[in-house]
Design a protein around this nucleic acid. Structure first.
Length: 744
DNA sequence: CTCCTTTGTCTTTTT
DNA sequence: GACAAAGGAG
């Protein structure tokens, strides 16, 4: 395929700063890869001098492959990776200048939580006032803005709450350093710190990366922005690609101003807009444009396509999430019968929790699927345990890993002995592991001393073999000698078998790593593992339906897309509706825009009238985003309803009528649209119309009166009056809304 | 010291 | 409703 004039211009504009505003589906990945190839083959740039930063490892891998094909060089020498992986590679070489060991451990969210909990305990903070999540997010925001603990403390003057956070931040940072560990945010911040304090290091990387490219630039945060600035300062050959309409990571510190103000930071910058969309039908594109048009503060652009109109955007509303999932499963089945592949479909939702019902239905309908996100492979217990062994072998200063495995398998070492060792470690200023190694010196340890020493001797013996044995051999030794798998085999439950499968999978991953890595090492493997996103593990060739959040779907495309849970309170989320910050709703709308533009040919949006959330039934209105799509682009599906049982049919028709009514309302800005979703306590099974779901003759349960039979239901002015004959309390009359009777 | 039960919290999104 | 953390019994 030929490049269009704008794309061509973007490829050939190699010198100086360049901003490419690339609308969804405008072929930016092609432009980026062509540009790299052009630099190498036409401009004779050494591949070694090019750095391309992408959002996910998967995207990086794909780009590297495509460069390989285009430019007749070893694309491996072009450095293509994510911000975080790039930073790890740099820090592995130079972080000793900042007082860390170069074999530092990378802490994931779970590890961070443990650390922060420890600190909360140590500082005797009121856990009601200071939640670990809140504290971690405050620390994370600070780091994303490159605010050090010291600077944070200065800014906290006069604010008691901020002062406490500041103390926690400092303690947290101290603890990480003691454990020779960095968290995700540290990777960026420490790299910036390194560049700012070590001019020679910065200079060597500036010389090395003379041509910089940053993809998904709209999602960079301040730390990433500064990092890029530093690297680009010398040669100014910086090309950033992004779409302000697809900025969806504000909660993670992404600053949309980075892209909007690019021309301010680089006044000589050229700007190229890519507005032709090669992905979606005109109808889908029009729907997306109509939705995003409601946002203010964006760079004006209009996507167009020379594809034909295509199908209307489909919208369906259901009584509950079960029916929603059933419909999606049925629809996929039907389309597969007509020749579609499973891999043509993606089911997208706002929160991970929504995936469960789809999984269940797909399982029942025999639809192969893959769930992206949710519980990460590497956060499963058995995987974390084994990785903790490897981490301990690799970096004995990581107390967290040591604590995790000290009693896995059971070694009869309890909290008491461990605390004694920890106290001693603190007093001596050594790591927990070191204290255990010297267990004889620790006061108060009687029999436990031998056990602790036994553990460290075992780990030490393994450490002696690092570099001699491969990572795979090392892992197998751990599995074998600890009896980890044997224990699971003995358990012989469905769960334990699944765990064993996961462990086998881990071994496979080790082998794959060792085969692919330029120079494999235990340390390198652990870093790799810490930085993979779930989406990275998706291989293209499996024929499966993909289930994932809207966030995970960024950058992907599918012939058929289901946008599910299109309800006010779900999407846009309750948090953003109630927030008084308009920016939050705008970000949510961008997320919707991302969702719509994933679809190539067919887009189905679904919503439910009722939905169970955390054990509560919610009644939600149709998402305001659905109303923002012009009516003439939407099919409400009256004629295409699948054949069902008679009563279902009637119910469906009512739903459809309601859907039509909703559409006739003046959409987004009518007062009712801003009503909060109705929450009801408990699991009342009231229909959405207010009618009870039970009938005369049904047996029901009342919270106080127990079970009884419904004698009569009379519709009153506001509610239904129900007469029930209870087994123990006799005949009672009550209002349905209050009684919360459950049909049995 | 370990196992089991109870209690509390949570939900937006993730490298 | 689900899962982790804390508390109590053996």
């Amino acid at each position: 395929m030929q490049l269009n004039p704008q794309q061509q211009a973007a490829v050939e504009c190699t010198e100086g700063p360049l901003l490419i505003i690339a609308g969804a589906g405008s072929g930016k990945t092609r432009v980026l890869t062509q540009r790299i190839a052009y630099l190498i083959t036409e401009k004779q740039v050494n591949p070694w001098n090019i750095l391309a930063i992408t959002f996910t490892n998967k995207a990086a891998g794909e780009m590297r492959d495509r460069v390989d094909q285009l430019a007749d060089v070893n694309g491996g020498s072009v450095w293509v990776s994510t911000f975080h992986s790039t930073c790890v590679r740099i820090l592995r070489r130079f972080i000793d200048r900042l007082g860390y060991d170069t074999n530092f451990t990378i802490y994931d969210t779970d590890d961070q939580k443990h650390v922060i909990k420890d600190i909360i305990k140590q500082m005797n903070l009121d856990t009601r006032m200071y939640k670990d999540r809140a504290l971690l997010s405050a620390i994370s925001s600070a780091k994303n803005e490159l605010i050090s603990p010291e600077e944070y403390q200065l800014s906290a003057a006069g604010d008691w709450n901020k002062q406490t956070i500041s103390k926690v931040y400092s303690a947290y940072q101290r603890m990480l350093k003691q454990n020779n560990a960095l968290d995700f945010d540290d990777l960026l911040m420490k790299t910036v710190e390194l560049f700012q304090s070590q001019p020679d290091v910065l200079d060597s990387y500036q010389e090395r990366f003379r041509y910089l490219m940053v993809d998904e630039y709209q999602d960079t945060n301040t730390a990433q922005f500064v990092l890029v600035q530093l690297l680009a300062k010398k040669y100014r050959n910086l090309c950033v690609v992004g779409d302000d309409d697809q900025s969806i990571y504000r909660f993670r510190g992404a600053n949309i101003r980075n892209i909007l103000d690019f021309e301010k930071s680089f006044p000589e910058a050229k700007v190229i807009k890519l507005e032709q969309n090669y992905r979606s039908t005109q109808n889908i594109l029009n729907a997306a444009n109509a939705v995003i048009a409601n946002n203010r503060g964006r760079k004006k652009k209009t996507l167009w396509s020379d594809r034909d109109e295509g199908e209307l955007v489909h919208f369906r509303q259901f009584m509950n999430a079960f029916e929603e999932a059933e419909y999606v499963a049925g629809d996929i089945r039907a389309k597969v019968r007509e020749g579609a592949e499973y891999s043509d479909f993606a089911v997208l939702y706002r929160t991970n929790a929504q995936s469960r019902l789809f999984e269940e239905k797909f399982l029942m309908a025999n639809i192969p699927y893959r769930l992206v996100g949710g519980l990460n492979f590497y956060s499963r217990k058995e995987i974390k345990d084994l990785l903790a062994y490897l981490k301990t072998i690799d970096n004995a200063r990581d107390d967290l890993a040591v604590r995790r495995i000290i009693n896995v398998p059971k070694r009869g070492i309890g909290a008491a002995s461990l605390n004694k060792a920890a106290d001693y470690a603190e007093a001596q200023g050594i790591s927990l592991y070191e204290a255990m190694r010297r267990a004889d010196e620790v006061p108060g340890l009687a029999r436990a001393a031998a056990k602790l020493k036994g553990f460290t001797q075992y780990i030490d013996s393994l450490r002696a073999m690092v570099g001699i044995l491969s990572v795979e051999e090392l892992l197998n030794k751990v599995i074998d000698q600890t009896g980890y798998v044997r224990e699971l085999e003995a358990e012989d439950t469905e769960e334990s078998r699944a765990r064993i499968e996961n462990i086998d999978e881990l071994i496979t991953k080790v082998v794959t790593y060792e085969e692919n890595a330029e120079q494999s090492s235990l340390n390198g493997f652990l870093a790799d593992v810490a930085l993979v996103a779930d989406i990275d593990m998706e291989d293209e060739d499996t024929n499966k339906v993909l289930l994932m959040t809207l966030h995970s779907a960024k950058g992907l495309e599918f012939p058929n897309v289901y946008l599910t849970g299109m309800e006010d309170g779900i999407f846009p989320s309750y948090m953003t509706i109630t927030s008084d910050d308009v920016m939050e709703l705008e970000e949510e709308r961008r997320l919707c825009y991302v969702g719509i533009t994933r679809a190539m040919n067919d887009l189905v949006m679904t919503s439910c009238k009722t939905r169970m959330i955390r054990g509560e039934t919610q009644y939600n209105k149709v998402s305001r985003f659905v109303h923002e799509i012009p009516r003439e682009l939407v099919d409400l599906g009256r004629d295409s309803l699948p054949e069902r049982k008679k009563e279902r049919e009637i119910q469906k028709n009512n739903v459809w009528k309601k859907a039509v009514q909703d559409f006739r309302k003046p959409a987004a800005y009518s007062q009712t649209m801003f009503d909060k979703p109705v929450l009801t306590k408990g699991s009342s099974l009231m229909g959405a119309s207010g009618a009870p779901d039970y009938e005369v003759g049904d047996t029901v349960r009342h919270i106080k009166f127990g079970t009884g039979m419904v004698l009569n239901i009379v519709k009153g002015a506001k509610d239904y009056e129900v007469t029930v004959d209870f087994e123990k309390y006799g005949v009672k009359k009550m209002f349905a809304a209050f009684a919360k009777l459950q049909k049995i």
